Amino acid sequence: MTAGLTLRLARAAAFAVVCAGLGLAAHLAGGGAVAGPVLAGGLAVAFLVALPATGRERGPGVILGLLTGLQVALHLLFATAREPRPPAAIGVHVHASGLVPDLGMLIMHCWAVGLTALWLARGEAMLWAILRRLMTRLFARMLPPGPAGFPPVERRAASGALDMPRPVPPRHISSGRAPPAALPTGLA
């Protein structure tokens, strides 16, 4: 299933806002400042980089890689475009040597990027599950009904399989209703 232009633009915009917002929040938390035009440029860069990746569903690895690369680019953009001001105005900026973060900031960036990527990947999976389900139901409603007074007849293809698509359960939902199986002896 591929996305149309409207869905692609909406997904790229949502990704760009989350990515630029994460970069801005991390930069401000580190004591930096970001001018409005610099933030708008970072948002535009994130949107343009994310747009080609919105044609179809993406997994957590692609989202993590894209988000990591954009966070590095935004960090460099925000660090190089900062306005000159006295260090005592807000406090000392946490960066050790301007463009390179110290170990604590690097760890915090990695945690923030990892958690945000997982959050975006879950949202991506739910969006595509909803779209698949809607398309299945829409397709099933477009089939002509059976004769009046008779229950609907399942149409079967030559192979014996159902001709109409079945609803696909979302991948993130466990469908078992029974309690979990007992662990093999020796593992408990």
Rank of each mutant, 00 (worst) to 15 (best):
L48P: 08
V72D: 02
G59W: 11
P60G: 15
E83R: 12
T68D: 05
L77P: 10
G65S: 10
A50E: 04
A81Q: 13
G61T: 12
A81P: 03
P60I: 15
T68V: 03
P84W: 06
P52V: 02
T54I: 02
P52Q: 15
E83M: 07
E83C: 03
V72C: 05
L48R: 10
R58F: 00
R82E: 12
F78P: 12
T80N: 11
P52C: 05
G69S: 10
L66N: 01
A50S: 15
T80E: 12
L48W: 11
A81N: 13
A50V: 03
A53W: 12
H75N: 05
R58C: 09
A79F: 04
I63E: 00
T68Y: 00
R56V: 02
L64M: 10
L64R: 01
L77Y: 04
T54E: 15
F78H: 14
V72L: 13
L64D: 00
V62M: 11
E57G: 05
L70F: 01
L76Q: 06
L51P: 11
L48I: 09
Q71W: 00
T80S: 12
L48N: 06
P84K: 12
H75Y: 03
G69C: 06
L77F: 03
L70V: 02
E83N: 07
P60M: 14
R85I: 10
R56N: 05
I63A: 07
A50N: 12
E83S: 07
G65Q: 04
T80K: 09
L70I: 04
F47E: 09
P86M: 14
G55F: 00
A50D: 06
G69M: 06
T80F: 06
V49P: 05
R58H: 01
T54R: 15
V49E: 10
V62E: 06
T68M: 04
L70M: 12
V49N: 06
E57N: 07
L70C: 04
T54W: 02
V72G: 05
P84G: 01
L48E: 13
V72R: 03
F47V: 11
V49I: 14
V49A: 14
L64I: 04
R85D: 10
P86Y: 15
L48S: 12
G55P: 14
A73M: 09
G65T: 13
V72T: 09
R58E: 11
H75S: 06
P52D: 13
T68P: 01
G55E: 04
